[in-house]
Design a protein around this nucleic acid. Structure first.
Lengths: 375, 375
DNA sequence: AGGACAAATGTTAGCGCTAACATTTCGCCG
DNA sequence: CGGCGAAATGTTAGCGCTAACATTTGTCCT
């Protein structure tokens, strides 16, 4: 198990109205305590505010005030209402609430289908941050991020009545489709191009790539090759730019990057090509999954890692430490990405402002055994 | 990219009311066509049924009938209403609908945080199947699957007003917590213990494990060791059982399985132990990520795969084909799992029946280069 | 003790939609 | 050509909640 995955769930167990608006406790047990007077609701439908009100002998509005923790309810009254709430196992009806307030306390997440480490981790991180803020998360997944598909997915989300959207949309093209919507709906683009009119949160890809490249140059490698991600991806482009910048700053030769698509398969193909190049000593691969493919290709081509060739990846997927050899790579803090996205989004939701802030999170170099000085 | 991830999105682009209840089209352009008569709604809030009704000159109920594609509307009227709908960029308000009908067209998915291949793939598969049925998906993720956490997550989901739950809850213990809820709410457990009172959908773990083991025995290996998943996981227990059954049927020695937790780290630890055993010739590892660790440990221990030792995994993660050597493993069809889960769930939602069906999906052996006859 | 004011509680009116029933319109037959 | 029945449309009443305002109750001062 990934160590970070452990640690107790700490969402507070809230009795209705105890402290948070809309808080809810354990699964209610309406079929609980006895003494259900004649005030018991017709037992077909779940108890509503008025049922509790009738039972306790107050108005439904007072019950509502208790449930929502509004001020101006006498402690004695509050106690009695709370008891009634518990007795009937009341749960607020979210649809009614949404209808009355115009807010659903639901956020939409636009996610990319697949098992790419970054997007998946971000999805979960966003969900957790949202839960902490007492929001629900509705997911819409996409196979592709072309503008049409993005627009359609946003439409689906909009139809679902959400309060805001976190778009995990690392494709550069997607940004425009998002901008069009962002004027009408709070939206944060994760790993989106930050030059639009929209709020973004992203990991500093360029910085990471520069770090990786400089690490290799500093070890004495004359230059560094790059197995790139798709250049229409934000991350792909950023990593290419950072790698190139580092080489140019050091006056090292800049060979054209080899294009990949994030998959181990593509990494393997690129690695095979590289394995033929006699002066190859260092490769920066745009993500760990491709690096896995590169590693296998190099080994099969008779190049030892790290003795003959050094390899650096990007992502630090949990398996990276168990590649052969363990992979030096850049770790991205997706939990932080999720947290920041939510912060930025809720700020928009709550103030009504359109967001334009760009949050950038630095990645961190993790040294393992796949890098060494050149032979 | 994972090949299966490709292929065009085919969700139909529905004009409101064209064919499905609640269908919705592109992002509406209310700021679109001109000629906005005096019937235009006070432009603060989005257009409602009554706005369209007023514009067209019919009752809001007629508009509702058109939107929901109910019969008994004259073609001419329908046309006029559709035009009005389009002109104002009408979108049904889901909260109002949910309040009036008692159904939210939203399903909850209980998912396990982390980057485990199975649960993640299942989540996306369920989302896609739900979308095809015109349901939304709300996700609640969990770090751990102990009964308390499961109960709490279900409570959160319930508070969100969903129509049913798909619980991706592979832990045996979780089943009881689910049963408690299933009597009040449509629920399907994916990879849950099928002996409860609840509907389940799962891959036939035992069958898969037996297949893997038999494949190795058939190649001539005297016996097969097992690096197991946690035995309190449904998959973990099932794979142990299948492996054991195959060995016993063949009269082969049954060494105690080595316990793991699905991570590459655990696989590495187990692999190190195994590397010391001189008579080791074949290992069945309970998932691919652990198999990666085993592979590295064996190599570092001087045992060649497959020349000295054969290894079989489980899952067929996209990277498995790029391990060194490429891994023989069992592929699970998660798309089918998602589809079946949804079918079973919607059956419950729509008929009101409590589900008890157990759907089982067979896995498929994928032969690669990590298996060979013993030395 | 009598207000004056604040605190506590109650009342009313929607939010936007659907379901059930009421009414109108139309086609068609005797 | 009147009237019957079905088809088409309209009317009404909630769903459960919150927000705004109205009313009652309590508290404190002079």
């Amino acid at each position: 198990m990934d160590g970070a995955d452990r640690g107790g769930e700490s969402a507070p167990q809230v009795v209705p109205g105890a402290s948070e608006p809309g808080g809810q406790g354990e699964l209610a047990g309406p079929d609980g305590p006895g003494e259900v007077g004649s005030t018991m609701p017709a037992s077909g439908r779940p108890p509503a505010l008025t049922d509790v009100a009738r039972l306790v002998g107050v108005s439904h509005q007072t019950v509502s005030r208790v449930v929502n923790n509004h001020p101006g309810v006498r402690p004695r009254t509050r106690e009695r209402v709370l008891a009634g709430l518990r007795e009937l196992g009341y749960r607020p009806n979210p649809a009614a609430r949404a209808l009355a307030t115009g807010r659903s306390r639901t956020l939409g997440v636009l996610a990319l289908t697949g098992t790419l480490y970054g997007p998946t981790s971000t999805l979960y991180a966003v969900e957790q941050a949202a839960r902490a803020a007492d929001y629900q998360v509705t997911v819409v997944s996409l196979h592709s991020l072309d503008p049409g598909a993005v627009r359609q997915a946003l439409g689906r989300l909009l139809a679902g009545g959400i309060d805001g959207v976190v778009a995990i949309a690392p494709l550069l093209d997607a940004t425009d489709a998002l901008s069009a919507v962002a004027t009408r709906l709070p939206l944060v683009a994760v790993e989106g191009r930050p030059d639009g009119n929209i709020a973004t949160v992203s990991v500093d890809q360029e910085h990471g790539a520069r770090t990786a490249t400089e690490h290799l140059l500093a070890a004495g490698h004359p230059t560094v090759r790059h197995v790139a991600g798709p250049s229409d991806w934000y991350e792909g482009a950023g990593r290419i730019a950072g790698w190139r910048a580092a080489l140019e700053a050091a006056g090292a030769a800049v060979h054209p990057p080899l294009a990949g698509d994030w998959t181990a398969r593509a990494g393997f193909a690129a690695g095979r090509q590289l394995a033929h190049e006699p002066d190859l000593t260092a490769v920066f691969v745009a993500n760990d999954q491709m690096a896995l493919g590169v590693l296998r290709a190099l080994r099969e081509g008779g190049r030892r890692v790290p003795e003959d060739v050094s390899v650096v990846g990007f992502d630090d997927i949990p398996e990276a430490a168990y590649f052969s050899p363990p992979l030096t790579t850049l770790r991205q803090d997706f939990t932080e990405v999720g947290r920041q996205s939510l912060r930025s989004l809720l700020e928009q939701v709550e103030t009504g402002a359109t967001g334009r802030a760009h949050v950038v999170i630095p990645p961190e170099l993790v040294l393992r055994r796949s890098t060494a000085p050149p032979p």
